[in-house]
Simulated assay, not measured.
Amino acid sequence: MKDILTHLFEYKHLTREEARQVLIGIARGTYNQVQMAAFMTAFVMRNITVEELEGFRDALLELRVPIDLSEFDPMDVCGTGGDGKDTFNISTLSCFVVAAAGQNVAKHGNHGVSSLCGSSTVLEYFGAPFTNDPEVLKRTISRSGVCFLHAPMFHPALKNVGPVRGQLGIKTFFNILGPMVNPTMPSKQLIGVFNLEIMRLYAYLYQQTDKNFLIVHGLDGYDEVSLTGPFKISTALKDEVIHPQDLGFPVLAPELLSGGTTVAESAGIFEAVLRNTATEAQKEVVIANAGLALYAANPSSTLDTEMLRAREALESGKALQHFKSFLEAS
């Protein structure tokens, strides 16, 4: 690791294979926590390259605990995290709206690093146990349309660096990797990213696949559709900047999206949205993200059509029922 760190501190880059080998070493416990922290910090100081990102991705996919859910044709709905905005659990809520609209979801997630309450945190609060048992996950997705894949249970490397990431408390390249290494390898995906450089890298790599994908970035720094201003989307067919008003949504003030100061408060917002008793801002932003996810899964449709499907799925109470079924089946 000393040679690798010296190489990085001289502003040099890793090859794809070098990046793969380092991640494999991290997964096997070859390096201590100080070395891992220094390695992650090096990539905070400069942008990651395509080759490095590919190598890290290759290592995690090679070492993952695989699971085949292809019979359910699921999609993933997730963001990189690390935007520092402390919003409530918008993408996790969107999963249940998407499922209620008829599209199964295999959600890949973790506890928050730069935010109080990640997807794992809020679902754990409601009593959902984490598992990598295929039979349990298949039962859950078949009954509720959603299953949850707690990242450390599927990625040994993520489990090993968890304490270091938590102590650093900042976004690292592991935030960037998360959406790329869903162990089910879904063919449909909505990915939120926290800056335009990462969006460019993701678009390049996803263009090399046959996935139905949509990458989104809020131009004021969000890794999701915040409705606080315009957002950019990138698909296999187009790049486009969209304003909330273009889709009939209001422009929201950032403070209206706060996730609260405790996990219990975040969970309260989560449940209120599903019960259709949340604020209009909270409901609208979930509908916007769920609609975008449905459009990612159905690119031959239109954004307006998918936004209407998302709204009906939430306001009818179907999303709440899917969430209840998820907890029961889990």
Rank of each mutant, 00 (worst) to 15 (best):
I4P: 10
I4E: 05
L5E: 01
T6F: 11
T6K: 11
Y11L: 07
T15Y: 01
E17R: 09
A19Y: 02
R20H: 09
Q21M: 10
Q21N: 14
L23E: 13
R28Q: 14
Q33N: 12
A38V: 05
A38F: 05
A42V: 05
A42T: 07
V44D: 11
I48V: 14
T49W: 10
V50P: 03
E51K: 08
E51M: 07
E52F: 04
L53N: 00
G55I: 04
G55P: 02
F56N: 05
F56T: 08
R57Q: 13
R57M: 14
R64P: 10
P66D: 06
I67H: 02
D68P: 08
S70I: 02
D73W: 07
P74V: 08
P74Q: 08
P74F: 12
M75W: 07
M75N: 06
D76N: 12
V77Q: 03
T80C: 04
G81Q: 00
G81V: 00
D83Q: 04
S94M: 03
C95K: 04
V98E: 02
Q103P: 01
Q103W: 03
K107F: 14
G109T: 06
V113S: 06
S114A: 15
S115I: 11
L116S: 05
E124W: 01
F126Y: 14
A128F: 05
D133P: 05
V136P: 02
V136N: 11
K138A: 15
R139A: 15
T140K: 08
S142G: 14
R143F: 09
G145S: 09
V146I: 09
C147Q: 07
F148A: 06
F154D: 10
F154G: 10
P156N: 07
L158M: 13
V161K: 08
Q167E: 15
Q167C: 09
G169W: 08
G178H: 09
G178R: 06
M180W: 03
M180I: 04
V181W: 02
N182W: 05
P183H: 02
L190E: 15
L190A: 15
E197K: 14
E197R: 14
M199Q: 11
R200E: 15
Y204L: 11
Y206M: 15
D210S: 14
K211Y: 07
D220Q: 11
T228Y: 09
T228I: 10
G229Q: 07
K232D: 00
L237G: 00
K238C: 12
D239K: 06
D239H: 11
V241P: 06
I242D: 08
I242G: 08
D246Q: 12
D246F: 06
V251L: 15
V251K: 13
L252K: 06
L256N: 11
S258P: 05
G259K: 01
G260C: 03
G260N: 05
T262C: 05
V263S: 04
A264T: 01
L274R: 02
N276Q: 10
T279N: 10
A281I: 06
K283D: 12
G291R: 01
A297T: 04
P299Q: 10
T302Y: 12
D304R: 13
T305D: 15
M307W: 08
E315S: 14
S316E: 04
G317D: 06
G317E: 12
F326A: 13
